[in-house]
Write a protein that binds this DNA or RNA. Structure first.
Lengths: 107, 107
DNA sequence: CTGTCATTTTAATAATTATTTAATAATAGA
DNA sequence: TCTATTATTAAATAATTATTAAAATGACAG
């Protein structure tokens, strides 16, 4: 179960064009991930700027990295994303986010 | 289907403590929503600051408002949230976000 | 070791965002 | 109409964030 702060951090990490594209590419790549430089070339972003964004995504727990030779491979980390989705959808019709007719008593 | 820009805007709207709490409270309230002042009191945030945050959430399409007498009621809008979740989870095992063993050919 | 490639870090700048206070708008009731 | 209530807007400030260029680190091949 994620804390509110962890969820805000994950959302902040994804709330930026370049980082959202990085994450989506890594999701599509699966566990093997992709090398930093390859991602940079693919997204036409400078390596320095990519590092900055990798850091934000890593710190939020959304991606992880492994060194392989001279390359650093990044891969999507699904647990934080799943926790984030759970946090956003809970409290509404058992997590089914839709215009439900059973409002809680909290209001 | 949401554009990348719409998704970034929705994520940005939720990537802030007060707004995340506003949204979650409204999700729990269902379609009837809650009055602006009631939300402000509940979250211990000044009305002016709340208006600022309501605007961000509204502009992202995450909430909508209706006037009722002197009160303005806000309610969660589920379509943008659902579009956002779809955008985040697509490209991975038919939208099932998990550590899947079938990486796409994109890498 | 030395040089090269891949990536990260640092420093500087530009741009965006959150919060507060004060002022304004809209509605309802005396 | 006058006043109180509810909410929004505007202006000012403080804080955070993204980008660029330059320098530094780390890994490997020769």
């Amino acid at each position: 179960m994620l804390t509110s702060t962890q969820v805000v951090e994950a959302l902040s990490a994804l709330a930026q064009h370049t980082r959202l594209e990085i994450y989506r590419l890594l999701v599509a790549c699966g566990p093997q991930g992709m090398a930093a430089g390859q991602l940079a070339e693919r997204l036409k972003v400078s390596p320095a700027n990519m590092s900055f964004h990798f850091k934000a995504l890593s710190h939020a727990g959304l991606i992880s990295s492994r060194q392989e030779g001279r390359f650093v491979y990044y891969a999507a980390n699904f647990t934080v994303m799943n926790g984030m989705l759970a946090y956003l959808t809970e409290n509404c019709c058992a997590g089914n986010l839709q215009d439900c007719a059973i409002p809680s008593k909290k209001c």
